[in-house]
Measured scan of single mutants.
Amino acid sequence: AEKTGIVNVSSSLNVREGASTSSKVIGSLSGNTKVTIVGEEGAFYKIEYKGSHGYVAKEYIKDIKDE
């Protein structure tokens, strides 16, 4: 049951290796980017990222929809 969301930041949002603010940053997404959410862990969504997965803070994702 995948969902999509939109990155809701003015600059960019860090994509992390794990569901923690201390996890390594593996990339970033600019505002209004559409993401595919494959799961959630605590305050983070697990998303599809560059052929693999990454984690982003839930508070910066809006317009969550079921695909």
Rank of each mutant, 00 (worst) to 15 (best):
A1V: 11
E2N: 09
E2H: 09
E2L: 15
K3C: 05
K3S: 13
T4S: 12
T4F: 15
T4E: 07
T4V: 14
T4D: 05
G5S: 03
G5R: 01
G5H: 04
G5K: 01
G5M: 03
I6H: 04
I6T: 15
I6Q: 06
I6S: 05
I6W: 14
V7N: 02
N8W: 07
N8P: 03
S10F: 07
S10A: 11
S10V: 12
S11H: 09
S11D: 12
S11K: 08
S11L: 07
S12Q: 15
S12K: 15
L13E: 03
L13R: 02
L13G: 03
N14H: 08
N14D: 08
N14I: 10
N14K: 15
R16H: 11
R16F: 07
R16T: 10
R16Q: 12
E17H: 06
E17V: 10
G18A: 08
G18H: 09
G18Q: 15
G18P: 01
A19F: 04
A19V: 08
A19R: 03
A19C: 04
S20Y: 14
S20H: 11
S20L: 13
S20Q: 11
S20R: 09
T21K: 11
T21A: 15
T21H: 15
T21M: 14
T21F: 13
S22L: 14
S22M: 15
S22R: 14
S22Y: 12
S23E: 07
S23A: 15
S23W: 04
S23T: 12
K24W: 06
K24F: 09
K24M: 12
K24P: 14
V25W: 08
V25T: 13
V25F: 05
V25L: 13
I26M: 07
I26N: 02
I26P: 00
G27I: 03
L29V: 12
S30Q: 07
S30A: 09
S30G: 14
G31V: 14
G31F: 10
G31Q: 14
G31H: 07
N32D: 15
N32C: 06
N32R: 07
T33Q: 07
T33A: 11
T33K: 07
K34F: 09
K34Y: 09
K34S: 05
V35H: 01
V35Y: 02
V35R: 00
V35P: 01
T36A: 14
T36E: 05
T36W: 12
T36G: 06
T36L: 14
I37C: 02
I37L: 05
V38C: 04
V38A: 06
V38G: 02
G39S: 10
E40T: 11
E40D: 14
E40K: 04
E40N: 08
E40S: 14
E40P: 02
E40W: 08
E41G: 04
E41L: 13
G42Q: 07
G42Y: 09
G42N: 15
G42V: 04
G42L: 08
A43I: 09
A43T: 06
A43R: 15
F44T: 02
F44Y: 15
Y45F: 05
Y45S: 01
Y45W: 07
Y45T: 01
Y45G: 00
Y45V: 04
Y45I: 04
K46H: 05
I47Y: 00
I47M: 02
I47T: 01
E48L: 09
E48K: 14
E48S: 14
Y49W: 11
Y49D: 01
Y49A: 01
Y49E: 01
Y49I: 04
K50S: 12
K50W: 10
G51H: 10
G51F: 06
G51M: 07
G51E: 08
S52A: 14
S52I: 12
S52P: 01
S52F: 12
H53M: 08
H53Q: 11
H53N: 09
H53L: 09
G54S: 02
G54N: 01
V56W: 00
V56D: 00
V56G: 01
V56S: 01
A57G: 14
A57Q: 13
A57K: 13
A57E: 11
A57C: 06
K58S: 07
K58W: 03
K58M: 12
K58G: 03
E59G: 08
Y60W: 09
Y60K: 05
Y60D: 05
Y60C: 05
Y60F: 10
I61G: 01
K62E: 14
K62G: 13
K62C: 05
D63W: 14
D63N: 09
D63L: 09
I64C: 05
I64M: 06
I64D: 11
K65H: 15
K65V: 13
K65S: 12
K65W: 14
K65D: 15
K65R: 15
D66N: 15
D66I: 12
D66A: 09
E67M: 07
E67F: 04
E67L: 12
